[in-house]
Design a protein around this nucleic acid. Structure first.
Lengths: 114, 114
DNA sequence: TTTAGTCCCATAGATAGGCTATGGATACCG
DNA sequence: CGGTATCCATAGCCTATCTATGGGACTAAA
């Protein structure tokens, strides 16, 4: 499959952590797999660059929201597998409602005039 | 009314320009008024800090998306009034569809598992 | 008349998130 | 064997947003 370089506009800033946490809430996965999953489920709209992904994973792990261990992928390559912690699950819930709240608020501003 | 300092989480990053352009697409307005409008229409959810607002207005003006002139507010204070340019109107349309596309893509990722 | 509060502008500096660019290693396939 | 896909990781940059600060002017209350 592979990550293609896209022409600008990858993510909505501030949503990357949430997308990662959500992905990991469904399956234990390695970094590359997380990016692939987000890309495919979003029908190629959301592209997580590796330069965004790995720093994000380290941030999240430092915050105790995810944990990791080395393993091997189905392709027989070494890979670091991440899983959600309890704190990560809580954070995911908070992020989801916060995001929904913001999007709803934006929608009110963008709604056609009264 | 006045802007209260809120406790974190003001905006969804990357949406400020769109919110400003949208506001100006409905009325010619000064900076402070733009922030007030966004805050009220969003039911106090979205708060545009002045340190974000004025730099954004300058960016937008530099890009030719808005234009401005000095005037006086209804409170008899000097104020710089901004209006949308033709280019600004085009950009607004682009921003809206781009935003919708991203939010929809995010929704696909966040949807409950199949 | 002083004072507090609101309205309005503006900028400097810090911060942080995301991107570009780069590098490396291994497995698989034609 | 060469190319492509898989996988990790970091340095450096860019830029948007926030914090903090400052100032001017009008208004209402004490």
């Amino acid at each position: 499959m592979g990550l293609k370089k896209s022409e600008r506009q990858e993510l909505l800033p501030g949503t990357l952590d949430m997308l990662i946490l959500k992905t990991l809430s469904r399956q234990v996965l390695h970094g590359y797999g997380i990016a692939e999953h987000i890309r495919q489920v979003s029908s190629e709209v959301l592209t997580v660059e590796e330069g965004s992904l790995y720093p994000a994973l380290q941030r999240l792990q430092l915050q105790g929201l995810i944990a990791s261990e080395w393993g091997h992928s189905v392709n027989n390559r070494r890979a670091r597998y991440y899983r959600l912690t309890a704190a990560g699950r809580r954070r995911l819930g908070e992020s989801e409602s916060s995001f929904a709240r913001l999007v709803e608020a934006i929608a009110r501003v963008m709604k056609p005039a009264t």
